[in-house]
Design a protein around this nucleic acid. Structure first.
Length: 445
RNA sequence: GUGGCUAUAGCUCAGUUGGUUAGAGCAUCGGCUUGUGGUGCCGAGGGUCGCGGGUUCGAAUCCCGUUAGCCACCCCA
């Protein structure tokens, strides 16, 4: 019986695994650089947790089943609900702002395609307990740095920045109530992939005959790429009254956000783009998505404010902002940019063994070197010198430790530096002193 | 869930109008006397031609179905 991997699931042979771990280590390094703490949560959760957050429709996209205790459970499709529960449960005892991150596998029952599998890793980074734009700025700066850590630069990616608050104010100024506004945002989210005629058709029941002109105004807003234009546009919508005041206040938060992003060195990656609103309705303020610079492909990462979610899932009132980045799209991008390093792992030393007595010496010395934290390997069966050297080269070893009958007799080992070709004998007694020097500076020819 | 393309060795691919025992390169393993390097030379293993059915004297090749992969749509937390 031959078994195959389930559709959308991956196996990680050593090279792929090394590459995956490289991605993880960069993610972890950047999160730690911003002093975020790593947490983890169960892979299997009550189905209800996801229904509560996303609605009944979500079930069709989950790996869910009934466990032996009759509980309806699901493999986690995302981290946010679990995280909201963790934070909610301890909210009163946690020092704020709460800055946490996680790297974990997630599962979605969807048709696999480019940049999307059924099991994938996500980097989740969140800040809780800080309502001001400082938290948004910190998070976006972290996102930018996380992508830069892989060698991606301004020419490679951008972060499209938008704001649901500003949209709601704009739509309120148009005279729409909150339901109508939500419906319009749902359409804005799909505008990029929708025919103009179809969009007008969809807007008709909401804004009436005026739909075409209304859409034109929306398109004008989406085309805005700089803050001054955005600011002027927003101010022109309402000159006085409640909405005007809110617009002014919100624009100040925008200024603060942009100022901080510039100060953090992330400014050049930011592209104002109100076309981003992010589908599901729980986002409440600034929202953003990272894309390949040309805008092609799926989003590399996405996030934003979700000030109401912790409470919705049973916790206290808790402002929150976070983003998630997937490993699949990221790895695809790194491949296409030629930034996928060769992650083959090579040993520092390979022992070349000339006989039974030599093997004992080589193994004893290897034990010492290994305890110092360096990598040593030797052939597990006796082989000719020629073959052993060839092998050492294939494996990319930096040094050969040569143990032949001559060396054993003299109580030495011969060291060969493959880069320089230089060879030198060292007394075996001096092994522990010699090794760190060799690692540091090699052997001169 | 819908549609398009694809499927031959571990990988990349040949394989004639349907015709004998399905090939190559790379990779793997072994050898080229147990003292020196990614080359070189010799050799070996490895295939139910995705799977199932059909047409035919005969199918990797033609037809139908199915599964998987890729791509697009739907969706994208």
């Amino acid at each position: 019986m031959q078994f195959e991997t389930l559709p959308g699931f991956r196996e990680f042979y050593p090279e792929a695994c090394a590459r995956r771990n490289h991605i993880f280590s960069q993610w972890r390094k950047v999160a730690r650089a911003f002093n975020f703490s790593e947490y983890d949560a169960p892979v299997l959760e009550p189905l209800e947790l996801y229904i509560e957050k996303s609605g009944e429709e979500i079930v069709g996209q989950l790996f869910n089943f009934e466990d032996r205790g009759g509980r309806a459970v699901a493999m986690r499709p995302e981290m946010t609900p679990s995280l909201a529960r963790l934070v909610g449960a301890k909210a009163n005892g946690l020092k704020r702002p709460i800055k946490w991150f996680n790297i974990g596998e997630h599962y979605r029952y969807e048709r696999p395609q480019k940049g999307r599998l059924r099991a994938f890793y996500q980097y989740n980074v969140d800040i809780f307990g800080e309502a001001g734009p400082g938290a948004d700025a910190e998070l976006i700066a972290l996102l930018v740095q996380a992508l830069q850590a892989f060698g991606l630069a301004v020419a490679d990616f951008k972060v499209r920045l938008s704001d649901r608050d500003l949209w709601l104010l704009m739509l309120a100024a148009e005279g729409l109530d909150s339901d109508a506004s939500a419906a319009v945002l749902g359409i804005v989210d799909k505008l990029e992939r929708m025919d103009r005629e179809k969009a007008v058709e969809k807007l008709c029941p909401i804004v009436g005959d005026e739909a075409d002109a209304f859409l034109s105004r929306i398109e004008a807003v989406i085309a805005i790429r700089d803050f001054d234009t955005l600011s002027a546009h927003m101010r022109s919508l309402a000159s006085e009254g409640d909405i005007a005041d809110q617009i002014v206040a919100r624009l100040q938060e925008w200024q603060e956000l942009l100022k901080r992003l510039n100060a953090a060195g992330a400014g050049e990656f930011i592209q104002i783009d109100l076309g981003i609103v992010r589908g599901l309705a729980y986002y409440t303020g600034f929202v953003f998505e990272a894309f390949e610079a040309s805008g092609a492909g799926r989003a590399l990462a996405g996030g934003g404010r979700y000030d109401a979610l912790v409470k919705k899932l049973g916790g206290p009132e808790m402002p929150a902002v976070g983003f998630a980045m997937g490993d699949v799209t990221l790895a695809d991008l790194l491949d296409s940019k030629g930034l996928t390093a060769n992650y083959v792992q090579s040993p520092d030393f390979i022992a070349i063994i000339g006989g039974a007595e030599a093997r004992d010496a080589a193994m004893a010395d290897s034990a010492v070197i290994r305890s110092m934290g360096y990598t040593v390997e030797y052939p597990l069966k006796d082989q000719s010198f020629g073959k052993q050297f060839k092998e050492a080269n294939n494996k990319g070893a930096r040094f050969a430790l040569i143990y032949g009958s001559d060396e054993i007799e003299k109580g030495v080992f011969k060291l060969r530096d493959f880069a320089s070709g230089a060879e030198k004998e060292f007394p075996r007694d001096a092994l522990a002193e010699v090794i760190p020097e060799l690692i540091a500076s090699g052997l001169e020819s």
